[in-house]
Each structure stands twice: as C-alpha cells, then as structure tokens.
C-alpha cells in the first residue's frame, strides 16, 4: 500500500471540503473494498477521509419504508427488527453479504457508492425503487447506477442514506460465485404499489439491471409458474471462468422463480 494522509471527518461537510482540498482524495466507509484495493496497489489516493466518526450517518428509521444511514453496517441491517418487520427481504440480503466479519464493518453507503457489478445492495435499490440521499440531493435508484463501478455521484458527493419504500412482496435470491461468494447471479423481485420490479446483479455486462421480460410476466401473475418458459437473453451478460452468459441467463430465471416463491 502506498502511504496517504488519513483524516477523520467530523461531519459530512468536513468530508466534502477535505475531498476538495485533497489532490486525489477518497472517502472510506467500512473500507471493505477500499482497503483491499489499496493493499494491492491498484489505487493510490493522496488522502483517505474516514467517515466513521461522522455522527448521524448510521441508523435505521421506519416510516412507510425503511431509511438506512449510509454508515450502517450490513450486520446492523440484517439484525434490525425494524428492517425485518418492514422489508424482510432487505434483512435477508444483508445477511448474505460477504462473511460475518465483512458484515460487521461493511456499510450500505459504501456498497452502493462502489456499485460493484456483483454486489447485492444495488439489486435491492433498483427493485424496490430506492432513493439515494446525498449531501446535496436525492437520486432515484433508476438514475443512480451507471454501469461497472460507475454511479451518478459527483467526485465530491457523499451518500448520507438510502430510503427503501415498502413492498407488498419482495425477496432476494443469490447464487454465489463459488470462490468469491459475491453474486454470480442475484435476483431481487419486488411487488410494489408501482408495479413489479425485478433487478439482477452479478450477471450484467454493465452491472445491475432490470429484467423486463420477467417483470412483464410477473405483472399479470406474481407466481413462479408465470416465469415458466420465460427466458432472459444472454446477449448482454457476463461470461467468465465461473459461468457462461447462457448459464447466467438460465440462473436469472431460476433465481427469479425461487425469489417469487420465497416472497410468498
């Protein structure tokens, strides 16, 4: 790892000004992605600005849906009775991220801002129609994820919370990569007031996406059998040593069926 200046931000505003003052600064939430990246010398920021000391960035509140502070850990989400009571699928998703030690440190804000194409939270955001709140604005999930590791965030913009509207029914089904345990395919299905939304992570060439063929089939009949014979095109899916695009396409439908069944 190259050395850097370490700063503990006292507030979000502090963090933003520290970012702007730095030659090449980066914010750190739980550090679960950033630190491995730095260790491999794949990035060499001049300043690492730690958000851990910023008050008000973690915590969970319920009103209609669930609002989760950006610095809330995956363990806190998976263990939250509020989340389990409001959107249990979200607690289940958090329970399946990484391993227990990653869940103790990793945060929702970090995961969403990083937008790893195999991360779990982006699928929940997209399927539930979440709103990503930052230090300066609110961004709809539909407008937030812009491809591999790319988001709508400005260079100095910091996520403060993510709000998930409640869903009538929702479930997340993850088929993990056997080695990394990231999603090889992860499908989040949600039946909401705004309709049925199905978001897929782990599989898309350009990151998380909505599976329109599955959404259409489920809109009229929210049951696993409605997906019989419905296929997802392999054209824009990833192919690597772990899975062909065709296998991923097949798994999307299969995981979607299982998610619909789990959603009840």
């Amino acid at each position: 790892m190259h050395d850097f200046n370490y700063q503990k931000a006292g507030s979000v505003a502090d963090a933003v000004s520290a970012l702007n003052a730095a030659d090449d600064g980066t914010v750190m939430a739980g550090g679960m992605t950033l630190l491995p990246t730095l260790k491999q010398r794949l990035a060499a920021p001049s300043d690492v600005i730690d958000l851990a000391g910023v008050s008000g960035l973690s915590g969970i509140s319920v009103s209609g849906g669930v609002t989760i502070g950006a610095m809330t850990t995956h363990a806190a989400v998976s263990g939250s009775t509020d989340v389990k009571g409001t959107i249990p699928a979200l607690a289940d998703l958090a329970e399946g991220i990484g391993d227990p030690q990653v869940r103790n440190r990793g945060t929702i804000g970090g995961s969403v801002a990083n937008n790893d194409p195999a991360a779990d939270y982006p699928a929940a955001c997209l399927a539930l129609g979440a709103t990503i709140k930052t230090d300066r604005r609110e961004i709809a999930a539909d407008d937030f994820f812009n491809g591999l590791f790319e988001t709508a965030l400005a260079e100095d913009e910091i996520i403060t919370s993510v709000s998930f509207p409640s869903a009538e029914k929702a479930a997340y089904m993850k088929f993990p990569n056997p080695a990394s345990r990231y999603a090889l395919v992860g499908v989040f299905v949600a039946k909401t007031a705004a309709g049925v939304r199905v978001a897929v992570t782990g599989a898309g060439d350009s990151g998380v996406f909505r599976a329109s063929s599955l959404e259409q089939a489920l809109s009229s009949n929210f049951s696993a059998s409605a997906l019989d014979g419905i296929t997802v095109s392999a054209d824009d899916l990833m192919s690597d040593i772990h899975a062909s695009a065709e296998y991923r396409a097949h798994l999307i439908t299969t995981m979607a069926k299982r998610a619909v069944t789990a959603a009840g």
């Binding site: 370490y6 503990k8 550090g31 679960m32 630190l35 491995p36 260790k39 690492v48 730690d50 851990a52 227990p100 030690q101 990653v102 103790n104 440190r105």
Partner: peptide, 11 residues
C-alpha cells in the same frame, strides 16, 4: 469479530 488485515490501525 473483524479482519485486522482490512482495517487501518488509525481506524
């Protein structure tokens, strides 16, 4: 429990 290889001492 936490992975001490993935946190800075300063954290």
């Amino acid at each position: 429990s936490a992975k001490s290889c993935t946190m800075l001492a300063l954290q």
